[in-house]
Design a protein around this nucleic acid. Structure first.
Lengths: 225, 225
DNA sequence: ACAATAGTGTCTCTTAGACAATATCGA
DNA sequence: TCGATATTGTCTAAGAGACACTATTGT
């Protein structure tokens, strides 16, 4: 019967730090794999969680101190072998969060590990991380996803760098700006520029209102572009 | 605890019939919604199913008499409200199957319903169907997915028609052939052509070996229902 | 003025679609 | 031969990338 199934949620929290993509790991505080670094996750609490997405948001809130990031379902990983306790099922999500948010979360237990350099993790978490990277990279080339790795405001050269870090290759500047223009998801902040350096300052941009993810976790699944 | 969670698998079985996309529905033989048309699906059996994909394949085999179709995970739908019995979770898959295979399966209970014309189904099955259609159409424009709706052999004009039915709009013939050529997933069958009509016969093609999925029907008589 | 980076104009090359010419069947 | 559809050739338009030019800051 289905009562034997271990139902959990895991989150691949991706962020930028030192110009490279990192995944957030936490030491597990229960067996199995107590003390070992793993993805933030845990059992679904039917009494507490509206659905699995709410459960994922709870994991991020409780374990990483992060609220309302870009959060999207990645897939469900299941089977007899992945958890030593028995037949289990993990509904996995990935989240994109600006580096500053993670650093400000003040959860000292968080370890930011190079996302491409994950060799082994407990359960099938390494496989989940790889699936998340594949998904994010596939979607990045034609969508607005990477903006969620930036802060509230950013310049176009900064945003381009984020795309380049994700995709792992340089992007044509003119094409990039054309694409951003077509997507119509950004708006310049009137009068705001990033100055301070000995060169021409760059215009600051922000996400247009309807694409911003604030404290409402209700509307989901929409990916502009 | 997680033991309260109802874990099931549902399958959106898509096929072509009468030049339009259909979804396979079955009358439920248990409460809730006994006798109502719904997606083929059921509880995960941890003792029997290697993982959720195996469970989905089992549903197709037992309930629709179809083996080894194109099968891909769609997503997991969850929450308190979707099943009157309590907090539930459905790992959903979609399958693409040639029309002939469905017709030959000889499961009289199967109803082929116009896929775009699904207004209400039990649980959140209508939402699941809509998600499947979105996914299939998104992937169809740049991938080889639709070939799995064709039989073992087909002509390029036939395949183009399948793409056009899926996408709902005519495709440029030259572009279509160029794209198929670039994808390098098809091979002409030497000497085989689709003749019989009063016009030039079309070359028959098949999927190249490495892309083929063995499509077969289950032996009749095995029907644990 | 100079160094350095932001932002733009334009050219070329690649690719997608329109159009039409040619090919091959049964009647 | 004719009617019908398959297949291919080629022209044109749209889009992506390369390149270089202009713009604006601090020193």
């Amino acid at each position: 019967m289905s009562s034997k199934i271990i139902c959990s949620v895991d989150v691949v929290l991706l962020t930028l730090s030192n110009s490279s993509l990192k995944v957030a790991l936490l030491e597990r505080d229960h067996d199995p794999f107590r003390g070992v670094l793993a993805l933030p996750g845990g059992f679904i609490h039917p009494d507490e969680d509206q659905d699995t997405e709410a459960a994922a948001a709870r994991m991020l809130r409780d374990k990483a101190g992060i609220q309302s990031p870009y959060l999207e379902q990645l897939g469900t990983f299941s089977g007899r072998g992945r958890d030593p306790r028995g037949w289990s099922l993990s509904v996995s999500y990935y989240a994109l969060v600006p580096g500053a948010v993670v650093q400000a979360s003040e959860r000292p237990g968080i370890v930011l590990h190079p996302a491409d350099d994950v060799d082994w993790l407990p359960f099938d978490h390494a496989q989940i991380v790889r699936a998340a990277l594949t998904r994010v990279r596939d979607k990045s080339s034609y969508s607005s996803l990477p903006v969620y790795l930036c802060g509230d405001t950013f310049t176009l050269p900064e945003l381009q760098t984020v795309y380049e870090i994700l995709l792992g290759e340089p992007i044509n500047k003119v094409s990039f700006r054309r694409k951003m223009d077509e997507l119509e998801i950004l708006e310049p902040i009137p009068g705001a520029q990033k100055a301070g350096k000995a060169h021409r300052p760059a215009q600051l941009y922000r996400l247009r209102k309807q694409f911003r993810r604030k404290l409402s976790l209700t509307d989901r699944g929409i990916n502009p572009g």
